[in-house]
Design a protein around this nucleic acid. Structure first.
Lengths: 234, 234
DNA sequence: GAGAATTTGTTCGTATGTATC
DNA sequence: TGATACATACGAACAAATTCT
């Protein structure tokens, strides 16, 4: 047992690679709106800001571009993605497809503890909406859906969904600036939870599909209104 | 003697980033089985092989890991992914979900020219199977499905599918070594094309779902048999 | 449209951590 | 286990390309 007990704490913590912590930091900055949509991100700037070289920043750019949070052209820089009504339609129709599959697989597998967890996220969502905290509301909302996705026990499904979840977070922030009154708060997660409680697979599939259709409709309307307004101002 | 993938139009296209051409070359080498599944890939080796520095190779590793063709651990190197029966199940169930959505959107949009294109891919597939050319058969098969996906006019759906398509190519190569007689040749694409011809959306959805279910069943059986055999030999 | 400034793409050196004998 | 070999993550400088003046 005479092994280097001088600094056990450091060894205990799993070493986080710089590229990952930079990626996580950037992701969070995007979600919280520290960067405006369409804003250009410069490697050297962020490298200095994070106290690293350009390498890890470059890696983070590449990953976040894959995820769909950033866009870049040939040597033309990297920008925070701007979402259009087409993007909104794609996001929600694809999420509908993925989450329907997730529900189908998850209903049988999940027990009461998960229903409690789902209810917890719903409560957190209501609190956040009441407090007019869109970031917290979005977090709770995504946590609700993530719980279902993780219950599906399907690695590739989860990975595919996580990319859309990240883009949804970006979307939510854009939306919070368009739609202050949070009409999304009116969306009901109840039927989904109920179907999970009774173990009714078909009802659960229909509930999640319906839920995402309503969300799509609301968000599409908001974006269409924004685009119409910006067209006028141009 | 292990060199020379530098056959393609060498300097003909100057406007391709090194990272992209390295990624494409690596992808092709994996599909054609130049690397065995589970084989370790070393940055310095491939950099020398491609005549570049380690940077672009590193970038290519990162992208192909995202795609699911490579795996890597923390400082443990990068390896060609090994597929299990669980991976096969995930691949085909998720493809079923995505391609069903694609069909739903594509049927209305696509005209006669696309039906001709689909028939062309089916013919190419039959020729390849008759010639016992699994690589060409896999190419034609994926081209068939890609045609449908592109017809869906849904960028994110296409991107998500392409990742699975790449992994399916990897799977096909592994399968060609397990199952020489190509039982997959028995799979029929006819009902899918027919439904497209008549414009029957529901029939098309059922046809593609059924098709992928059959493929999944065949491939799962093959992998289960392989695993059982390797368990005995251990 | 030419040239300067800035930013990205690429290369290579070095240190840290892993695997192996 | 201890020491060695080695691959990778990071840093820094060079080169090419784009944008702005």
């Amino acid at each position: 047992m005479a092994i280097d007990t001088s600094r056990p704490a450091i060894v205990a913590v799993p070493r986080l690679e710089l590229r990952e912590s930079v990626t996580a930091a950037l992701r969070e900055l995007i979600f919280t709106g520290a960067f405006a949509t369409g804003e250009r991100l410069v490697e050297t700037e962020l490298a200095e800001r994070f106290g690293t070289s350009r390498g890890p920043v470059r890696d983070a750019f590449a990953e976040l571009e894959q995820v769909g949070l950033l866009t870049s052209g040939r040597g033309k820089g990297t920008y925070v993605r701007e979402l259009t009504t087409i993007d909104v339609d794609e996001l929600y129709t694809l999420r509908q497809s993925l989450e329907t599959l997730a529900v189908r697989r998850a209903v049988d597998r999940l027990g009461e503890t998960v229903v409690d967890e789902l209810n917890g996220h719903v409560s957190a969502m209501e609190v956040a909406f009441a407090a007019n905290d869109p970031v917290a509301a979005a977090s709770a909302d995504m946590a609700f859906h993530r719980t279902i996705l993780e219950g599906a026990d399907h690695g590739r499904l989860l990975v595919a969904w996580e990319r859309l979840a990240d883009q949804t977070r970006l979307l939510m922030h854009a939306l919070s600036q368009i739609l202050p009154e949070q009409r999304l708060g009116g969306l009901d997660h109840g039927p989904i939870v109920s179907a999970f409680e009774t173990g009714d697979t078909v009802a659960a599939e229909m509930a999640i599909a319906d839920h995402l259709d309503q969300a799509r409709s609301i968000v599409m309307q908001s974006f269409a209104a924004r685009d119409a307004a910006s067209d006028l101002s141009d």
